[in-house]
Design a protein around this nucleic acid. Sequence first.
DNA 1: GCCAACGTTGGC
DNA 2: GCCAACGTTGGC
Length: 136
Amino acid sequence: MNYWLVKSEPEAFSWDQLVKDGETVWSGVRNYTARNNLKAMEKGDLVLFYHSVTGKEIVGIAKVSRVAYPDPTADSVAWVATDIQPVKPLKHPVPLTAIKEDARFKDFSLVRQGRLSVMPVDKELYDAILAMSQKA
DNA sequence: GCCAACGTTGGC
DNA sequence: GCCAACGTTGGC
């Protein structure tokens, strides 16, 4: 079991849309680091869903329902997609500012490598984020 | 194979 | 809307 975080601009694809659809194809990744992370996902892995640009907060938990396969939106088989399903929304979204303020996250990719759109999350950090989401 | 130029992402 | 960071591209 691994933990991940994916980013999406809510204008492009939001958590609400994922809940409404029940499942989505996580495609369109065109960055090798992010691609490698997608490939490392296993079925059932949990994925934190982060809204970038508008919101800048982690809003929900999803899970991997299908492991990496060739991205249907790409011309090349080099790129992959996965399928994800919503699990549950966070009670309180965890904003990027709160993560930046917390020393436990100083090496977290969301802080260190702002442009990466798919990243692994240590279990300790995943648990910490869930704990933060319980508090207002 | 290096590195400058360019494009994109995403926080502010 | 601006700009910093950084990945990618392409010339040499």
